[in-house]
Design a protein around this nucleic acid. Structure first.
Lengths: 208, 208
DNA sequence: ACCTGAACACCGTTCAAGT
DNA sequence: ACCTGAACACCGTTCAAGT
């Protein structure tokens, strides 16, 4: 009978983290403001601080929520080399699919935690392939750094107004092979580059 | 005779850009605030806007000043393969030495411009080595992406409280080679990883 | 236990007004 | 031509006070 709206139930920490997460996912880390978040939840800006520590702690909470949901990568294929390659590809796909997680991990300095499970899976396959010690380490690490680096760059370049092609199209240099020059004028195919580098690393590891 | 200090001469655009640059170099892009910069120069915050457009334009001006001073990389060595490797190493060293430039380029979306001269030098050496078309393109691009990615990651990981080693030291997994496990517990040697990946790429390119 | 409001110390930016 | 001051619309955060 009372025309007054029932007062909104007390906000929970989970609710706040979830709202923050959706802001981070849709508009990026920088777009998360405590004041906008509070407005979204119908709270005074200062109320947030009662539930989570501060903006930094909130971001860490969002990160952990995302990390917990990350599916584990699995190896497929018959030969050792094929299985290692499959894991590498799966990890790369995962990083691309969970772009907000990698971006957040990067700003929080927690990339290592994101990479760890993949690293372990890779280490198992490399061991199963018969590699040991330093040689095994080199393969695991170089694959993971290739994946991480390329994905970071991919993210970088997707923001850039494809600038290099135009730089290349203004260049005429007799010291550069004409076919190479023409190829450089087109945008890079990062998937192909990844496959190529991966293949080079696998060949180097399995040849010896 | 006048006890009054002579009024400060009008500020120049170059002066402002230089001051901004030194703030960026010493404390990072995020630390550059228009108000702090103005204070440093003894100006009202709003005076800056008369000389440079806004914060973004100022950052671009700082970037261009840095880029103009970047020395060009040169190839050394006798055999084609050695020369290509030398260029790659020189580029990597340059990126590491000019960390503020690469960081700034990254936030402004102008990494391609930083990479371009290096890419041209590499293209010349690869051409001189007798590679053509797509194969040459693959080598140039994979080397540059390896350098860029690894350097980006290096910067990332230097900020992280070496987290992965501790993750690895708590792991006991019979499916992982013991020597590999032990190796993963130590921090990664990025220089060695770079050399290894570079070598794998060069071998792949020059074997065919 | 949970929340508000006032307050503080920061931002970038515009614009009219001063010299 | 060059600069100031007031003003606006934002931030994150603390803390006393309210229910």
């Amino acid at each position: 009978m009372s025309p007054r709206r029932a007062p909104r139930p007390p906000a929970t920490r989970e609710e706040i983290v979830a709202a923050a997460r959706s802001m981070v996912v849709s508009d990026g880390v920088d777009a998360l403001s405590m004041r906008k978040l509070a407005a979204e939840l119908g709270l005074a800006p200062t109320a947030i601080y009662w539930h989570v520590g501060d903006r930094d702690e909130l971001l860490h909470a969002v990160f952990e929520a995302m990390l917990a949901e990350l599916p584990t990568v699995r190896a497929t294929g018959r030969t050792p080399r094929v299985r290692v390659a499959a894991v590498a590809r799966a990890v790369r796909k995962q990083l691309i699919d969970h772009e907000s997680l990698t971006a957040l991990a990067h700003t929080l300095g927690r990339s290592a935690e994101v990479a760890f499970p993949a690293q372990v899976t890779l280490a198992r396959e490399v061991s199963a392939a018969g590699l040991h010690g330093r040689a095994a380490e080199r393969l695991v690490r170089s694959i993971l750094f290739t994946i991480g680096g390329l994905t970071l760059l991919e993210h970088t370049f997707s923001e850039e107004p494809s600038h290099t092609p135009s730089l290349w199209s203004h260049l005429h240099d007799p010291a550069i092979d004409l076919g190479l020059l023409r190829a450089m004028r087109a945008p890079a195919d990062l998937d192909a580059l990844f496959e190529h580098t991966l293949d080079a690393l696998l060949t180097a590891a399995f040849a010896a």
